[in-house]
């Protein structure tokens, strides 16, 4: 297991490198000039100086190396400095956003909590709903409950988040007027009132995102349970007089959960991509919103950094999914 973990980790690094190379190359290949939007009154000499100040005059492989250095060494050491009060990153240039002229990581740090709250809660709610739905659908296969759950999960696939969000706003904000449709990001949770307000404004974005998660995971849970319910050990457990609930929860569920846990880990990047859309609908100023505004403003350092961070998230969740498989199922040996 330890060997396998180390091997998987060493495989993850080249993947990350290749991905950052692709992201970088895409920006390089694209025609387009960061100086194009400056006023025409600025003389070419000054523009050349600005180019030099931004490090744009160096050849692309040098800039790629510098960018990797900033991403992999400078930013983590700034983070360590902030945590422990050391001065590892002193004198190093950080990644600077072309839009705000501040460090990119600080920008992301300001936006990350909103995204993490909404995405994390959606993932938790979605999974907590999906597991019981999947279990019961499989246990009562072809029952009315199963048919409805199947229908809902097909709808969860066919109704993309930007439309389900619109439908929920129409129902809960416009008609019933129960919940706000716009996320108030200036809200500080200081007491019971502001806490309920925070919950109310998070309800719709979380519902949209968790609908997607529930639709997907409940299907996997159902088919994994069905695979196991027909097996001999289930009949043996019944014959020994194990109660139905005990049979489901203690005998079938642990076996059926193994593939589902890796599906849950693999779905994490997908829900972050969904958050890009949801943040746009409900105007949450999270990382997805930052990505869209940076793309529109041609702020390449911010766009590159967010994209690579998302890629890192995908690689890490693939890693978790693989390792979880081995850790949960003792029959799987990686040698």
């Amino acid at each position: 297991m330890l060997n396998y973990t180390i091997r998987r980790l060493t495989m993850a690094l080249p993947t990350l490198l290749a991905i950052s190379l692709i992201v970088f190359a895409l920006m390089e290949l694209a025609p387009g000039d960061p100086m194009a939007r400056l006023p025409l009154s600025i003389s070419p000499e000054v523009k050349a100086q600005m180019r030099e100040a931004l490090g744009l005059d160096a050849p692309s492989h040098v800039r790629f190396g510098k960018w990797l250095w900033q991403l992999g060494v400078v930013e983590p050491s700034v983070w360590i400095d902030n945590l422990f009060g050391t001065a590892l990153a002193e004198g190093q240039t950080r990644m600077i956003s072309w839009q705000t002229r501040g460090p990119v990581m600080e920008l992301i740090g300001q936006r990350l909590p909103q995204t993490l709250w909404v995405v994390g809660l959606a993932y938790l709610v979605g999974t907590m709903l999906a597991l019981p739905i999947g279990i019961w659908s499989a246990y009562r296969q072809y029952s009315a409950f199963d048919q409805i759950a199947t229908g809902v999960s097909i709808i969860g696939f066919a109704v993309p988040p930007f439309f389900s969000g619109v439908l929920l706003i129409l129902l809960f904000s416009v008609h019933l007027e129960w919940l706000p449709s716009v996320y108030d990001t200036t809200l500080q949770v200081s007491g019971w009132d502001s806490f309920t307000q925070q919950l109310r404004q998070m309800a719709l974005p979380v519902a949209v995102l968790s609908l997607q998660t529930t639709a997907q995971i409940s299907r996997y849970m159902r088919s994994a349970m069905l695979d196991h319910l027909g097996q001999d050990y289930v009949r043996a457990a019944r014959a020994r007089g194990v109660s139905e609930g005990g049979m489901l929860l203690r005998h079938v569920l642990p076996n059926a959960l193994v593939p589902v846990v890796s599906v849950i880990a693999l779905g994490l990047p997908q829900i972050f991509a969904g958050a890009i859309v949801t943040e746009q609908i409900f105007r949450v100023n999270g990382v997805g919103h930052l990505l869209i505004t940076s793309i529109q403003a041609n702020d390449l350092p911010t766009v590159q950094t967010i994209t690579v961070l998302l890629a890192a998230l995908i690689v890490v969740s693939n890693l978790i999914a693989d390792l979880a498989y081995g850790a949960l199922d003792p029959r799987i040996r990686y040698d």
Partner: peptide, 23 residues
């Protein structure tokens, strides 16, 4: 194929379209 599957596709599609649209 594995590499492409671990790319953050939505951001990349957005970037590619914005960057290549004008030219």
């Amino acid at each position: 194929t594995d590499l492409f599957l671990s790319l953050p596709l939505l951001p990349l599609v957005l970037i590619a379209i914005t960057l290549f649209r004008a030219p």
